[in-house]
Simulated scan of single mutants.
Amino acid sequence: MTNFSEQQKQLKIQQGIRKQEDELVISIQIALDNHNSYGDLEESQFRNIVRVSDTTESTEVIKNFLLYQLGRDRKWGRGEDSLAFIIIRDIETKIKNIAITIAEYAKTDDPDDLKNIHLELTRRYLGYGARYLVYKRKGEI
């Protein structure tokens, strides 16, 4: 692939990601609005998952960390209806499907591109969640 066509592909990927940001924000807000799915989750605990996402190249590592948190205490909820499982399902379905759509838009069938798109979307989703949780804890009336 020429340098120019690689740049074009990366530009389309970034455009595709930006076009899907509303969907990511809405999805994490829906998850966090369901307060029955989690306990007294603190902002710092949610930021920990954001840090994990920023320091790995694997969505599996992120999901593993969520399961670890779920096993530690009830702040992430319990069982299949927990916030942790809702986030894992979003990563595995909603976010994965958005990543596939973006890869198709960018006309790439490179599995590394798909993995990188999926990871970037997951990072953004979690980052938007951290912001929204601050609102839920401190700004909601």
Rank of each mutant, 00 (worst) to 15 (best):
E6M: 12
E6C: 07
E6N: 13
Q7G: 07
Q7E: 11
Q7H: 08
Q8N: 07
Q8P: 00
Q8T: 09
K9V: 07
K9D: 03
Q10G: 01
L11Q: 07
L11R: 05
L11E: 06
L11C: 05
K12L: 10
K12R: 15
I13M: 02
I13W: 00
I13Y: 00
Q15S: 10
G16I: 07
I17C: 02
I17D: 02
R18S: 13
R18H: 12
R18D: 12
R18K: 15
K19E: 10
K19T: 05
K19I: 04
K19P: 01
Q20E: 14
Q20A: 13
E21K: 15
D22N: 10
D22Y: 08
D22F: 09
L24F: 04
L24S: 02
V25N: 05
V25Y: 04
V25P: 00
V25R: 08
I26N: 08
I26F: 08
I26R: 10
I26V: 14
I26Q: 11
S27M: 06
S27V: 04
S27Q: 10
S27Y: 04
S27H: 06
I28W: 01
I28L: 03
I28C: 01
Q29V: 05
I30R: 09
A31Y: 00
A31M: 03
A31S: 10
A31L: 04
L32A: 06
L32W: 04
H35T: 14
H35D: 09
H35F: 08
H35P: 01
N36D: 14
N36L: 15
S37A: 13
S37P: 01
Y38P: 00
Y38L: 02
Y38N: 00
Y38M: 03
Y38S: 01
Y38E: 00
G39Q: 04
L41P: 02
L41Y: 05
L41C: 05
E42I: 10
E42R: 14
E42F: 11
E42S: 14
E42Y: 09
E43G: 09
E43Y: 14
S44F: 12
Q45F: 07
F46S: 02
F46T: 03
F46A: 04
F46K: 02
F46Y: 14
R47I: 15
N48M: 11
N48A: 11
N48K: 12
I49Y: 03
I49N: 02
V50T: 10
R51T: 13
R51I: 11
V52I: 15
D54N: 15
D54H: 15
D54R: 15
D54T: 14
T55F: 09
E57M: 13
S58N: 11
S58Q: 07
T59A: 05
T59E: 07
T59P: 04
E60V: 06
E60G: 06
E60H: 07
E60N: 11
V61E: 13
V61A: 12
V61I: 15
V61S: 11
V61T: 15
I62D: 01
I62S: 01
I62A: 03
I62M: 06
K63P: 00
K63Y: 02
N64I: 04
N64T: 12
F65T: 04
F65Y: 13
L66C: 05
L67Q: 12
